Simulated scan of single mutants.
Amino acid sequence: MSSESSIHTRLQHLGTAPCDAQHPVAPVGLPSIRTSTVRFNTVEDLEKTYRRKNGGERLVTYGRMGMETHAALEDVFCALEGGQRAFLASSGLGAISMALLSLLSAGDHLLAADCVYGPVYHLSNTVLGRMGIEATFTSAKDVQALAKHVKPNTKILYVEAPGSLLMEMLDMPALAAFAKEHGLILVTDNTWGSGYAYQPLALGADVSIVAGTKYVAGHSDLMLGAVIANDPALIKTIDTNQYAMGFSVSADDAWLAIRGVRTLPVRMQQHARNALDVCQWLAQQPAVRQIFHPAWPDDAGHVLWKRDCTGSNGLLSVALDMSPAQVRAFVNALTLFGIGYSWGGYESLVQWVDTGFLRNHAYFGKLADTAVQVVRLHIGLEAVEDVIADLQQAMQKAL
């Protein structure tokens, strides 16, 4: 298989079991290879493996790093993200922690976009703060305005694009140029695009993080994270720290993720089509104040989305002219939507967003001064006419 093949083709052939002269009969899928102990034939083989591993190669000296199944999944993430090395963690937040703890030291300053995944705030207020790492969260929409927050000890510019709650697009090439100008490492959460719809490394980011829990796995049945990079120095640093901190993923979860990613293109395309159909319906509803979805033509980030992305997904938020009691009734009346915080699986989900938290987001704009309520919807793979009918009956009950 050529490295120039379409990602659609590569995802069907990466991580398959070898079938060749040495393996004349083989399954299609690579099995889940589980182990805790790795054996060496001789002391010399053990010593050679350590020398090569210390030189940067992806070699296994202990079961925590995983065998062929893990390596195959790392190859999948590299193919999706356009990266040279991928490092696995047991959750998306675990991957974020791995990246930040690998690249930050006591006394450093983290400059972060205010639209990032909410638990990053908690990570900053607890673990990073206890370690003496300062953090500043601010809007990253105006890239040059970030300069006033850069300090002599600023080490990382951390962003998420599109943003976690309002799906705001950020100008990744401009952020990359800014980071380079100020000697910062640009780290981004790319769970929304998951490599298929968005490739921030190609746009200048130094490190990309993906919660494989979401679209990569696609079936809401496993927790997984990955950190992907290209720069040899960053790869070596992350490699050293991943091993030191003991991050690990079960072989069965790696196997499930490989199985799930086979259908990633068709799933994300259908999620995206369904979401746009829902946006079109929402735009006609009197109670809808604003739709947040970068593929929606009226979204403030649509121009950036068209320039930088190759697709979309099922995630959107909507500002509703409803009281808290009404939005509570709306969410509770939905029958096809589960109430939950995740997304990226085959099912539809709804989350009532804390507008108090959003008032700190510059992107919330003039809506921050009104009584609107915000819900985030993940539009699943159900028949979209059924999803819209469910939204309609719930809105009627709420109003």
Rank of each mutant, 00 (worst) to 15 (best):
residue 282 L to V: 05
residue 196 Y to G: 13
residue 227 V to K: 01
residue 210 V to K: 04
residue 255 W to R: 09
residue 221 D to W: 08
residue 254 A to H: 13
residue 211 A to P: 11
residue 284 Q to K: 15
residue 230 N to D: 13
residue 210 V to T: 05
residue 218 G to Y: 00
residue 196 Y to N: 10
residue 264 L to W: 03
residue 249 V to L: 13
residue 251 A to F: 05
residue 230 N to H: 10
residue 195 G to N: 11
residue 273 R to M: 12
residue 251 A to R: 07
residue 214 K to R: 14
residue 208 S to V: 14
residue 257 A to R: 09
residue 199 Q to P: 10
residue 205 A to S: 08
residue 209 I to L: 05
residue 268 M to I: 07
residue 259 R to N: 14
residue 246 G to S: 04
residue 288 V to N: 08
residue 264 L to E: 00
residue 205 A to H: 03
residue 239 D to N: 02
residue 247 F to C: 02
residue 212 G to K: 14
residue 224 L to A: 08
residue 269 Q to F: 00
residue 269 Q to M: 04
residue 228 I to Y: 03
residue 235 I to N: 10
residue 216 V to E: 09
residue 235 I to G: 02
residue 196 Y to K: 06
residue 270 Q to R: 12
residue 207 V to Q: 02
residue 260 G to E: 01
residue 228 I to H: 10
residue 275 A to N: 09
residue 234 L to F: 10
residue 239 D to T: 01
residue 198 Y to T: 03
residue 283 A to Y: 03
residue 288 V to Q: 09
residue 268 M to D: 02
residue 202 A to V: 01
residue 241 N to T: 07
residue 258 I to Y: 00
residue 236 K to H: 10
residue 207 V to D: 01
residue 213 T to E: 06
residue 227 V to T: 10
residue 257 A to D: 08
residue 236 K to G: 11
residue 212 G to M: 13
residue 280 Q to C: 06
residue 219 H to A: 01
residue 221 D to A: 07
residue 201 L to P: 04
residue 232 P to C: 02
residue 242 Q to C: 14
residue 198 Y to S: 06
residue 271 H to Y: 14
residue 287 A to V: 11
residue 272 A to F: 05
residue 251 A to L: 05
residue 240 T to H: 08
residue 249 V to T: 12
residue 285 Q to V: 06
residue 205 A to P: 00
residue 193 G to V: 06
residue 206 D to V: 02
residue 247 F to R: 00
residue 220 S to Y: 07
residue 205 A to D: 01
residue 262 R to Q: 01
residue 225 G to F: 11
residue 207 V to L: 03
residue 217 A to P: 00
residue 284 Q to L: 13
residue 236 K to W: 01
residue 200 P to R: 04
residue 246 G to F: 12
residue 212 G to I: 12
residue 230 N to Y: 07
residue 243 Y to Q: 11
residue 244 A to F: 09
residue 240 T to S: 04
residue 201 L to F: 05
residue 239 D to A: 12
residue 279 C to Q: 07
residue 252 D to W: 03
residue 266 V to L: 10
residue 212 G to S: 11
residue 249 V to H: 09
residue 195 G to D: 15
residue 202 A to D: 11
residue 258 I to N: 07
residue 241 N to K: 10
residue 225 G to L: 01
residue 264 L to A: 02
residue 259 R to K: 15
residue 243 Y to A: 11
residue 210 V to Y: 02
residue 207 V to I: 11
residue 222 L to T: 12
residue 219 H to K: 03
residue 263 T to K: 14
residue 221 D to M: 08
residue 232 P to V: 02
residue 213 T to L: 04
residue 273 R to V: 10
residue 249 V to W: 03
residue 226 A to S: 15
residue 259 R to E: 13
residue 209 I to G: 02
residue 226 A to D: 06
residue 230 N to T: 14
residue 233 A to E: 14
residue 235 I to S: 04
residue 225 G to T: 04
residue 285 Q to Y: 05
residue 221 D to P: 09
residue 229 A to H: 09
residue 225 G to S: 10
residue 193 G to E: 07
residue 196 Y to V: 07
